[in-house]
């Protein structure tokens, strides 16, 4: 474990806490893409299939359980909780996210570290996470003004994988046999998808103005 990866995991956890706070405090999920939340639930379920078989550390197991439980809880809130469900922007959240699932799984069948059930689902989860934010970014562009907590949620979610890139650089420089091309390339693509969001987020922070993504 290095400081970049720990900072990345804490930023990821923070993004989830900010989203939970937004939904709990405002009893609303306006501006939040249910489809992105569903994709993230699939990402965690596919990536942590080894939750009970491979013990890495207490921290690792604890965080996996937190990520799985929180992503399922958020999807449940948006789908089932009567007050939250009412505020879901159904007609704005129209990205065909099942195509992202199909494409990621197809890619994982061809590009993986080992042709085993766990490794294919792990690669699938890496590819899917790289594109999981797309429905959310499209929703933000369509819904015009973005409330602070939703903007902070997306910012921290994008920043966490950026910190992981620093972690991979650090591990590549300090560990002799460290090569994680699948995670690294996907992580760069994932962070690059946030580029324009980061730009507008920075502008809104600098001008102390409302975050607005151009349509």
């Amino acid at each position: 474990m290095n400081i970049f990866r720990l900072a990345g995991d804490m930023t990821h956890l923070l993004s989830i806490l900010v989203l939970l706070l937004k939904i709990y405090a405002t009893k609303s999920c306006s501006g939040v893409s249910r489809k992105t939340q569903e994709l993230y639930a699939i990402v965690f379920l596919a990536r942590y299939l080894d939750l009970f078989t491979d013990f890495i550390s207490v921290y690792n197991t604890f965080m996996k359980i937190v990520f799985i439980a929180s992503s399922l809880a958020i999807v449940w809130c948006i789908r089932v909780h009567p007050m939250v469900k009412r505020s879901y922007d159904k007609d704005l959240d129209t990205f065909r996210h099942y195509l992202l699932v199909a494409a990621s799984f197809l890619l994982a069948l061809f590009l993986h570290e080992k042709f085993t059930f766990l490794e294919i689902f792990w690669a699938f989860s890496i590819y899917l996470e790289a594109v999981a934010i797309l429905p959310q970014l499209v929703l933000l562009q369509r819904s015009g003004n973005v409330d602070n907590l939703t903007g902070q949620y997306v910012f921290f979610l994008g920043a966490y994988r950026g910190l992981y890139i620093l972690n991979w650089i650090y591990r590549y420089l300090t560990e002799p046999r460290f090569t994680r091309w699948i995670a690294c390339v996907s992580g760069v693509v994932q962070t690059a998808l946030y580029a324009d969001f980061f730009y507008y987020y920075f502008i809104s922070w600098k001008n102390n103005s409302k975050l607005k993504l151009p349509a």
Binding site: R47, I56, F67, E113, E119, Y164, R177, A183
Partner: peptide
Amino acid sequence: EIDDDDHDEL
């Protein structure tokens, strides 16, 4: 000992 293909990252 974590061998290489163990995904030790989240």
